[in-house]
Design a protein around this nucleic acid. Structure first.
Lengths: 194, 194
DNA sequence: CCGTTATTTCAGACATTACTGAAATCTGGG
DNA sequence: CCCAGATTTCAGTAATGTCTGAAATAACGG
């Protein structure tokens, strides 16, 4: 691998981390390389830069496309495919959240729903089912929330994050308003999303 | 594996999912089993229920303890260790967030900080460093926010989640108030956490 | 202390996943 | 329709990761 030291460190780190994630070392490295690159790269350039086989590059790129983390682009007068990582880091987070949800959360939710249709045959199964229901409820809340936040534009998202623990003060405020209005649960929260 | 069908499905699913996550099939299964169990189980019971080797159980439990997802408990008059998964699903989320952060995010932040101390030697490195700075900023924002939310009690957290997209309306409100107060950036947000 | 039972460690067997090179397929220009 | 460059597929191999049984260690009661 022949890369500027600064970039090499970054790429190698993502390679290692790729493992902890659901992707291979190579896939992590390819993504890291594209992320910091100031222009699209073709498969041969990537192969060369990372010192891996051409076929490995091809597979890695395919996987990254499946994750929607890189996209193909064509340069006029050049038949080769060029690949680049979308620039907007906020969008990257959205994409990641989306894909991980699709691959990890949704199948679990589906399984939980199926199980919850069953009738427990004894106290042991009954307890198990209750636990699964707890898990199901929590996951639904989390993903529902994530869905909503997902739709915020970058500025709103940044604002929300910058607020940090301030959120809890907003919640207090909301509660005061709610109580004030006669305890009829009509604060600024609850349902009716845009 | 001899388990009530309802539980078996759940355990097997977590085994599969374990793979996508950073843990082995066995570890996923052990956790799932403890999660739905209505009492602590000892290593032999787990071994028996999952049809795996005693040593595998021992290693799996050790890993789950490292994740702080299960804890050891002792029953009076019984020398064996009993294991159980903490009950509070909200707390589980906190633990997971905590550990994943420690294992995946923190090392990355550290690496990014190191790289950002370096002086880029050419335009290519300069662009790369700028991209890393973007990533660094985003991760800091996300983790800072997560830290704050982490400290909310279960009810506040539930409320926050239930609010969903309502958050954006709160933000609008905040902005109105801020502007109203003379555009001096003194809304309900910004710094000064509890 | 000693014997018994519980737990952990660890080297090797086994299984899974990642990577490569060669061959096959695709694509666009002539 | 053919050629050359580009990409993908795939079977075999290398590398990792997981699991086991046996042996070592620890913990407790007597």
């Amino acid at each position: 691998m022949v890369l500027p030291p600064l970039i090499q460190t970054f790429v190698l780190h993502f390679g290692e981390m790729g493992g902890r994630w659901g992707v291979s070392r190579t896939v992590g490295q390819i993504y890291a390389l594209l992320f910091v690159s100031d222009r699209g790269l073709n498969a041969d350039e990537i192969t060369e830069a990372l010192g891996i086989s051409r076929s490995n590059t091809s597979m890695g790129l395919k996987e990254l496309e499946a994750w929607r983390l890189v996209r193909k682009r064509h340069l006029p007068g050049d038949r080769r495919d060029y690949f680049e990582a979308p620039e907007d880091v906020w969008q990257i987070i959205r994409t990641l959240a989306d894909e991980r949800r699709r691959r990890e959360i949704d199948p679990t939710l589906s399984m939980l729903r199926d199980i919850m249709m069953e009738t427990p045959q004894n106290p042991e199964e009954q307890h198990a089912q209750a636990r699964m229901a707890q898990m199901h409820e929590l996951i639904e809340l989390l993903t529902g929330w994530a869905d909503d936040v997902q739709r915020l534009d970058n500025d709103s998202l940044r604002q929300l994050l910058a607020m940090g623990a301030g959120v809890s003060r907003l919640l207090d405020m909301k509660n005061k308003i709610t109580v004030f209005a006669g305890g009829k649960r009509r604060g600024v929260s609850e349902g009716e999303a845009s």
